[in-house]
Amino acid sequence: MIEASRVSVAYGHTPILFDVTARFTPRRLTALVGPNGCGKSTLLKAIMDFVPLTGGTITLDGEEIRSIGRRKLARRVAYLPQESHCPDYMTLGELVELAGFARYSLFGGPSAKDRELFHDALDIVGLAGMAHRQVNRLSGGQRQRAFIAMILAQDAEIVLMDEPVNHLDMKYQYATLDLIGNLTRNRGKTVVTVLHDLNLTTAFADDVVMMRDGRIVASGSVRETVTQDTVAQVFDLDADIFERDGRLVCLPGAKGRETIAA
């Protein structure tokens, strides 16, 4: 289990995270939610040891993340950045093969078991039979699924994703989050993902961590966390929260519109 304890992070002299304490429950999909610049992405980067902590600790099953070597960490935790780049001419097959790097020996390559895993990863994201296609020639939705396939091929039990449905249309947003949700339900993975849309969050997440100005405002299950009070506190929005077909729906009210118009 990943635990952040009193974590603080600053970029130069600008503090980003203050005293953040959070636990991410295994085999659940946790959404990090909050306004732009509240520190969601920084929290993921801090977990990956991409940014130095100015205070606190982050542990993986009790072991401090920054003392774990990159290869060992990669076998446990996979990370999908907000903007994924792929150089020209790289094929989908090459991309997923690279994901297994942490398991290869210095001069070795993928084993038969690894190749089976790569095939499964492409199959799960619906890109089977497209291994020879160049990643940069795929459509936006296919490209995002290609990077999710890369994460699957890494075969880590914990997956961190920074806005995985950004730039996707509504259909692909639902399809991609359905896919990510299945990772926890069917494959026992722990997923922590940054999401912007509260309705997507209530539809797919098990737990929610709501953040504002570098601090955690509320955390817990979707029903405990997403309330009129927390939405007002985090987003300055007067929103109606109601239940429809067994799930919470968030409908911003007049106050939100006035605030934005002002």
Partner: peptide, 21 residues
């Protein structure tokens, strides 16, 4: 050769896959 290929995806993606960037 292989970590260098991963680096062409960007330092964060490479580090996430296990490269000591």
């Amino acid at each position: 050769a292989r970590p260098l290929t991963l680096m062409s995806l960007g330092p964060e993606q490479a580090a996430s896959a296990g490269v000591d960037v």
